[in-house]
């Protein structure tokens, strides 16, 4: 019953291109954000469990390693947001030529980076 045939998506045989790299990053950031959702859950549950639990959660969230992780999650969020909007526009039939794919792809990366920096600037200031 089992056939030993090559299985998609054949990532190992293709040279990376902007289309495939942006696409797989959309998936990777989506998986990372799923983990991030449980950080949101922990924040809310700590708030529901009383002041002591909330304070210990804040200590945890303020740890430098956790902050680095949160910076990564925030970039994943803004990348997935921008790439998701681009994918919705592609569903509507836009960006189907090669120049448009490059232009919208680079625009999306710049927008995600600006949003990440703005997010942390808004938090710090």
């Amino acid at each position: 019953m089992a056939h030993e045939r090559p299985l998609s998506p054949h990532l190992q045989v293709y040279r990376p291109q902007i289309t495939s790299v942006l696409s797989i990053l959309h998936r990777i950031t989506g998986v990372a954000l799923t983990a991030g959702l449980f950080f949101l859950m922990a924040w809310l549950l700590a708030g529901a469990s009383g002041e002591a639990a909330y304070n210990s959660f804040q200590n945890f969230a303020g740890h430098p390693l956790v902050v680095i992780g949160l910076i990564g999650i925030s970039f994943a969020l803004f990348y997935h947001l921008c790439a998701g909007i681009r994918h919705l526009l592609m569903d509507g039939g836009l960006f189907f030529t090669i120049p448009e794919i490059y232009k919208s792809g680079y625009t999306m990366i710049v927008a995600a980076t600006i949003l990440t920096v703005a997010f942390w600037a808004a938090y710090i200031f």
């Binding site: 924040w43 909330y54 304070n55 804040q58 303020g62 969020l77 998701g84 919705l88 997010f119 938090y123």
Partner: peptide, 24 residues
């Protein structure tokens, strides 16, 4: 759900920046 998530993302980001490190 993606379309609904776009405005909610901006709201959630504002909520987090405003309150994740604020007092209980």
């Amino acid at each position: 759900s993606a379309i609904l998530a776009v405005p909610l993302t901006f709201w959630l980001c504002a909520a987090i920046t405003g309150h994740v490190y604020s007092s209980y």
